[in-house]
Design a protein around this nucleic acid. Structure first.
Lengths: 220, 220
DNA sequence: TTAAAATTATAACAATTTTTTAAAAGCTAG
DNA sequence: CTAGCTTTTAAAAAATTGTTATAATTTTAA
């Protein structure tokens, strides 16, 4: 389920757009000003951004430039007038697409899907792909099949690269009802995950142990 | 640009649906009665049909059966009530998908896109062909006859390769009104499907079990 | 630097859960 | 009633998960 970040000051339009993306099975997050945009991008790591060009204080073009300084996340710009489209075309800031207001929501969703389809081939997130449907993880399109708990564990660590989880936390968050299970079970799952990854040709260790603390997913 | 034929007596709904498909870059043609449907299909040769199940004089199911007599064009049925869905599941007329009213237009468009993507591949999906009329499945033109529930099960899994369905979901989606049936029934159907496929000379296991989760159709 | 202590890695095995299978019982349509 | 399909049942097989013991590694402290 892809994450969409909507940067739009008009509350009604933001909700409308979010609603359509929900219907199309995306998860969304909304911020209402350009000032909050950068932080939101870093925090939520969206798969795609819908960005209004007309924002108070810091406008869409400024936002886009700032985002582009640290991320290649696809951006669809919402523009109001033809003049703005021309301006967009002129400036070659890194916008992936633009949609003119008043826009058709299905069209917006579809463009988002197209862009994501294209982007997914680009292996943006270091080549990692985590698919909860299949309970599989893939690196550079090589599927790695994990068991239920292996996946649960891997996924939790993967979602917050660099964050260290204690074995207690891992039991609590990834194993849910197995609170009375021994810590060593975690070690074994980690061992098995590493073996699976190695078999799939992943040479670097991505699930790191942190002595005395727990495990974490390697950052960068 | 794919052609959609919309068979729907309610003028407003027909226009609404047509509007959404236009926005998604399809061309559409509308007929408002079942009586005109057959001729329209022959004349316009649509790539996909949206068919309302509730039509005056000749209803959607009758239309579907008639269309299936001479064409394999994908059909999405619009149904109003759950009872109708059950009826659909029971009759296995050759409907490719159904959408329940009130439906989300983006969802309808998306399902259409998915079906068309699959249909355009013809034999691209490893030579598999699923014929809802005959309740047969064929691989490279070798027919495999399945019973009603075997087919229903196989077809559901086949439509979303790689997606894992839990036994609960399979009961809900493929068996419709048999919610109180035991999980083990699914296992037996799967066993029988696999036996049939094996008898037909399909060596690879295409209906995979995913330990702890359910079953899925093998992807690629 | 080295030894002791603590932590993590690994492998073999046991326990548990889930899947597979076959046979029998229950249904249903002809 | 019969034949074919579906469901239940129960036991065997397979896969996963958990435990234990031991080895390897890292940290700490002498």
């Amino acid at each position: 389920m892809a994450k969409i970040l909507i940067i739009e000051d008009d509350v009604d339009i933001a909700k409308l757009v979010a609603g359509f993306f929900h219907a199309a099975n995306f998860s969304t997050h909304i911020v209402h000003s350009g000032g909050l945009a950068i932080q939101a991008v870093k925090e939520h790591q969206p798969d795609l951004i819908i960005l209004d060009i007309m924002l108070p204080v810091k406008d869409g073009i400024a936002c886009c430039t700032e985002i582009r300084a640290f991320s290649d996340v696809p951006i669809i710009m919402l523009t109001a007038k033809t003049a703005e489209q021309d301006r967009l075309a002129g400036l070659s800031i890194g916008v992936d697409d633009y949609v003119c207001k008043p826009f058709s929501a299905p069209e917006l969703v579809m463009r988002a899907q197209n862009i994501l389809k294209r982007a997914s081939g680009k292996l943006s997130n270091d080549g990692w792909k985590v698919n909860a449907d299949m309970q599989t993880v893939s690196l550079n399109n090589a599927d790695i099949s994990l068991t239920k708990y292996e996946f649960s564990l891997f996924n939790l660590l993967y979602q917050s690269p660099g964050r260290v989880y204690s074995r207690e936390q891992l039991l609590e968050f990834a194993f849910a009802d197995h609170r009375d299970t021994s810590d060593r079970a975690i070690d074994n799952h980690v061992k098995n995950i590493r073996k699976q990854l190695k078999n799939a040709g992943v040479s670097q260790v991505v699930v790191e142990s942190v002595y005395g603390l727990g495990y974490r997913f390697k950052k960068d």
